[in-house]
Design a protein around this nucleic acid. Structure first.
Length: 634
RNA sequence: GCCGGCGUGGCUCAGUGGUAGAGCAGCGCACUCGUAAUGCGCAGGUCAACGGUUCAAAUCCGUUCGCCGGCUCCA
């Protein structure tokens, strides 16, 4: 006797070969919208025979789980279409991902281009129109291997060999068959609202030593409107691309003469400098001191630090007086030399030394991306030297600063990851365990949710990484906290303890913004170029109505400049509408219109970029208005 | 680095074998203007670079560089 329930409804049957869709029917849960079902929380195909009972519910494409199934099935449909159009294609993997799905295919040397995508799409629509049943079969591993060997599918057989279970499942629709855990929609007619998006190369199993396959990205949604909205969102995201806005707003530029080395224009620097002002004030408040160390240092230093062994491939080298030197890829070794200039006391610890260090790292040409991924960047670095017992509190203090900066000041969502010991690392197992535990303890004592990234730590120690989410939902690593027992050892760093004896300090490496360049890129996209007043490169644009008002405009300009504000005057002999439009396009927070009326009353007419005309007011009232603006520097 | 695509004035883009085009921006002139584009005129390009095919190359082929979308790697 099987019993199925849904809320307060229930259904019992003796039929141990019943399909879930029959169960749903008997519970009056049948619907054309159903694409799968959940039984005791586990997902099943609608046609799956179940010989056990439990809580059952239908799954539709408008839920997160349903959408994932739909997308996975769309990937299969695409593979089926490709097999029809390009016989002999071998298939890799084809999962659902965040905003859609992809399939990695091996076209036997044939190359696809973007123009081929509509052709594949229309084949998919044709197959969808046939409403072919999607069926599941459970096979022993041996039988499955036979099956895919017979189909000459090397990638699938490789996958089967690695599956650690006696049986595997395959899904079929028409002549197409795929190794797959499922579940899937019941037939291909459920798949309507999809679009193939782009092509890319992808190594088989993500390993660059393997063959490169062709990856086809696509997406699918429950309704046409959702698909349309998604595509529109992507278009809008393109409009806030920091590379486009960086040019339009005259913030920075990139040149062939320096691939990966960005050039900052006056307006980009205005933002950078405001960011740095903010950063300095906040660090002074929190007990940091600031240092600056050289760009190029003797190779011996990098041999000693371990960078030569572990980081050489990312470093630039040069020669001075026939002696080998390296351009610094990190600030730590230089900072340690500063620490070692004096005999240190336990009374000085924890010692927090910050450095806005410009580091150079050789990145492979294909990974460069605007300001987000460059070959030279300014780290808002700091090294904290402390006693082991102080680690936890110091980590908590850094996480507090992270929260303040990311959340309170910039309004970002962020997530936290703990990365543990990688291959090719320095130091002993015990040291690594102690270090990892210290970080874990700090996370847990503050109830911080985090993911573990096994094997992703730095070569000298484990780390906590902070990932910000940008407008397209991409995440970027900014802050990091890295615990290091290795460098203090290698550099024989010491402090004199309360007991009068020498002790070895522990070292924390940390950044908050990460890279100022990347952080600026993220800010541009986050605000779509409309920077908040406090950080806007031009805060106020003064717009004289005609030549008669230039003199008054200049007086106002001087007044604002003396008050430390970033202000410009539009001296062009253009119509007012034109000057307003241009200031709007530059996304300047405040526009001050100066004409006869203002000249006469010695006041100003204020326009705010999103609220529009605020009317006339006195200079004092306007300054009062400005003082109400969010400003973490004042 | 790898796979695919792309490279035409400052920007956005036309131009597929026969003497390089448009709009915007720039400059000049006129208009002196009240909350998102005034009009007219002028100037600006060895078509990424190098090599090849051809009577003739922006256009076809090759190499290099750079950029874009991914993979791998990372702040």
């Amino acid at each position: 006797m099987l019993q199925f329930t849904n809320d307060n409804k229930s259904f019992t049957t003796d039929d141990s070969s019943i399909e879930i869709q029959e169960v749903l029917k008997n519970l009056n849960l049948d619907s054309k919208k159903n694409i799968a079902a959940k039984l005791n929380g586990e997902l099943f195909d609608l046609s799956r025979v179940v010989n056990f009972g439990g809580a059952v519910e239908p799954v539709t494409a408008d839920t997160e789980e349903g959408l994932e199934i739909l997308r996975h099935s769309t990937a299969h449909l695409m593979a089926q279409a490709i097999e029809n159009l390009y016989p002999g294609t071998h298939f890799g993997i084809g999962p659902a991902i965040k905003d859609g799905f992809y399939y990695d295919v091996d076209l036997n040397g044939a190359a696809l281009t973007e123009e081929d995508l509509p052709k594949i799409e229309s084949e998919m629509r044709k197959l969808s129109g046939k409403a072919e049943k999607i069926t599941r079969e459970d096979l022993s591993k041996e039988a499955a291997l036979e099956f895919f060997k017979a189909r000459n599918d090397p990638y699938k057989t490789e996958l089967i060999n690695e599956i650690d279970a006696p049986t595997v499942s395959i899904y079929k629709q028409g002549d197409y068959a795929d190794l797959c855990r499922g579940p899937h929609v019941p037939d291909t007619s459920k798949i309507h609202n999809f679009k193939l998006l782009s092509l890319a190369g992808a190594y088989w199993r993500g390993n660059e030593k393997n063959k490169m396959l062709t990856r086809i990205y696509g997406t699918a949604f429950a309704t046409p409107d959702e698909l349309k909205n998604y595509l529109k969102r992507m278009e809008e995201a393109k409009l806030r691309d920091h590379r486009k806005l960086g040019r339009d707003l005259d913030l920075f530029s990139l040149h062939e003469e320096g691939p990966g080395f960005p050039f900052f224009h006056p307006k980009g620097m205005a933002i950078m400098n405001t960011l740095i002002d903010f950063w300095r004030r906040e660090h002074i408040k929190r007990g940091y001191q600031e240092i600056k160390t050289p760009q190029i240092l003797d190779r011996e230093l990098w041999l000693k630090s371990g960078h030569w062994d572990h980081y050489r491939d990312n470093m630039y080298f040069t020669e001075i007086d026939e002696k080998p030197f390296a351009v610094k890829p990190m600030n730590c070794p230089g900072g340690i030399l500063v620490y070692k200039t004096q005999l240190r006391s336990y009374r000085e610890l924890p010692m927090r030394m910050a450095e806005l260090g410009l580091v150079h790292r050789h990145e492979r040409s294909g990974v460069l991306h605007g300001l987000m991924r460059v070959r030279c960047f300014t780290q808002d670095d700091a090294h904290i030297y402390c006693e082991p017992s102080q680690i936890r509190d110091e980590v908590i203090k850094i996480m507090d600063l992270d929260k303040y900066v990311y959340n309170d000041v910039f309004g970002f969502k962020y997530s936290v990851e703990l990365s543990t010991r990688p291959e090719n690392s320095m130091g002993s197992e015990e040291q690594w365990n102690a270090a990892e535990n210290a970080l874990r303890e700090a996370l847990e004592s503050t109830n911080t949710p985090y993911h573990v990234n096994a094997g992703d730590g730095a070569f000298y120690g484990p780390k906590i990484d902070f990932h910000l989410e940008d407008c397209i939902g991409r995440t970027w690593q900014c802050g990091t906290i890295q615990l290091d027992f290795q460098l203090p050892e290698r550099f024989e760093m010491t402090y004199i303890g309360e007991d009068g004896k020498e002790h070895r300090p522990v070292m924390l490496h940390r950044t908050i913004l990460g890279s100022l360049e990347r952080f600026l890129g993220i800010l541009i996209e986050h605000y779509a170029g409309a920077f908040p007043y406090w950080i806007a490169p031009v805060q106020i644009k003064i717009i004289p109505v005609s030549n008669d008002h230039m003199q008054y405009a200049k007086e106002l300009f001087d007044n604002f400049i003396n008050a430390g504000l970033r202000v410009e005057v539009d001296y062009r002999e253009e119509k007012l509408g034109r000057k307003i439009r241009d200031a709007q396009l530059q996304k300047i927070p405040y526009m001050l219109v100066i004409g006869d009326k203002e000249l006469e009353n010695k006041n100003i007419s204020v326009r705010e970029r999103s609220k529009g005309d605020l009317g006339s007011m006195s200079l004092d009232d306007f300054k009062n208005l400005l003082s109400q603006e969010f400003n973490p520097i004042h």
